[in-house]
Write a protein that binds this DNA or RNA. Structure first.
Lengths: 168, 168
DNA sequence: GTCTACCTGATAATAACTTATGAAGTGGGG
DNA sequence: CCCCACTTCATAAGTTATTATCAGGTAGAC
């Protein structure tokens, strides 16, 4: 648990970065580094990890702003596994929180609409089926009628089918 | 469901960006924009949304790479329903970028739902029309038939209407 | 006292990124 | 035929970001 501190010279060698670059990063990224009584920087292992990350992101081509943003969302979040509710970090990350909650909200609405759509869809399907059945029935009925007319009509037995029709 | 397309000139005015800047963004961000037969760019509403987002991120100071990253996490998965929980960080806990991408995702989903809704509505309208037509037709036909049966059938002049029916 | 390792602030030199312009060409309309 | 609104490719110009250097200082070690 003994915290180990590195001076800028060591870090510089360790990470192969010029000291002035380290100072530059510290400023531009607004990274806070401890100081001793004399004002000399004291880098912790964690700081070095952060720097390694920064270097990686830089390689990827992210600019200072993006890296700073990324760090903001990292620094304080390693402990909590998956934050059930909207993450904290209220100090810096107002917009982030906002975005997340917005997403939640919209997502919920979306789900609701999707549910309703499903219901609608089902109703629609039933209706279509019904209509289909109806039209088929109608065809059948008419065909039947026509058949009757053709056969029985030819025999002049009009009475019979007429009454049958009326009976219905 | 009618997709509306904008030419670069319109988009330029709409978003207040020079056309060459739009082309630059397209290249640097590797955004894909549809073209017509002549090669002219056709921007969809979704494209414009994307551009708005890009502009916002630019204002925040993110560089091309960062924005591209943010967009990438989005473009890929439009179909997946609603992410139940906010996904965990991939490479580096880059939650902000993810949030942004989530927003895009969700709003895309939103559009999709709206599209589906419109489709459903259209189907419903067609069905109603169809149903109307059918029932009117059916009534008409049956009435006609019944009329025939009542009048002519009663006079035993089956031949005449039967042949008429056959003539049809 | 001189070295070494650090600090700050300012400035210079580069590199990278964005935006603006120009040239040359296409196709639709009036 | 010319104008308009596009296209591409290339290049210039303008901005920012990053890296390097220099100057002037402090404190501990030998």
């Amino acid at each position: 648990m003994k915290e180990r501190f590195y001076k800028i010279g060591e870090v510089s060698e360790l990470l192969n970065i010029e000291q002035h670059t380290l100072r530059y990063l510290e400023n531009s990224l607004k990274i806070k580094i401890r100081r001793d009584e004399r004002g000399d920087r004291l880098y912790t292992d964690s700081d070095i990890d952060t720097l390694r990350l920064v270097l990686k992101l830089k390689e990827k081509g992210l600019n200072t702003t993006a890296i700073r943003l990324a760090l903001e969302n990292v620094e304080e979040e390693p402990p909590p596994p998956v934050p059930e509710t909207v993450p904290k970090g209220p100090l810096v990350n107002f917009e982030f929180v906002e975005a997340v909650s917005l997403v939640r909200q919209v997502s919920e609405q979306n789900e609701e609409i999707i549910r309703q759509n499903k219901l609608l869809e089902e109703r629609l399907r039933l209706l279509e089926e019904k209509l289909d059945r109806y039209s088929r029935e109608r065809d059948a009925t008419l065909n039947e009628l026509i058949q009757l007319l053709k056969t029985e009509g030819a025999e002049s037995k009009s009475k019979s089918w007429l009454s049958r029709l009326r009976g219905k």
